[in-house]
């Protein structure tokens, strides 16, 4: 059962990664990242459940992941807003000032 859960987590992570890598829009990239974090949550919960239920560390990781997801959302939209307001663009490709 643990392997199944972890496979699910891996699947979610990979789909999220594919989304983050292939999408141009910043918001869609954030959705990709959300999925990746969801994968992490699933993996953490599964590992807690199957390996170390006695300790609460697994749960703490899940809480941390949830917080991370929230922070990622907040900061993502803040940056998107700032970039949109200053550059009137919403795609990651257009904002390539850091180009080497």
């Amino acid at each position: 059962m643990l392997e199944l859960f972890l496979l699910l987590a891996a699947a979610l992570f990979s789909v999220g990664l594919y989304g983050a890598l292939s999408q141009q829009s910043i918001v869609m990239i954030m959705m990709g990242i959300e999925l990746m974090i969801a994968g992490v949550i699933t993996a953490a919960a599964a590992l807690w459940h199957f390996l170390a239920p006695a300790a609460a560390d697994g749960q703490v990781i899940v809480v941390a992941a949830v917080v991370a997801m929230a922070v990622e959302m907040a900061m993502g939209f803040a940056v998107t807003t700032a970039v949109f307001r200053s550059r009137d663009i919403d795609t990651a490709d257009a904002a390539e000032d850091l180009k080497g």
Binding site: S14, V15, L17, Y18, L21, S22, Q23, Q24, S25, M28
Partner: peptide, 12 residues
Amino acid sequence: MVHNRRGALTIS
């Protein structure tokens, strides 16, 4: 609104 689809697919 997609780019580098193939690269992303391979990596993921």
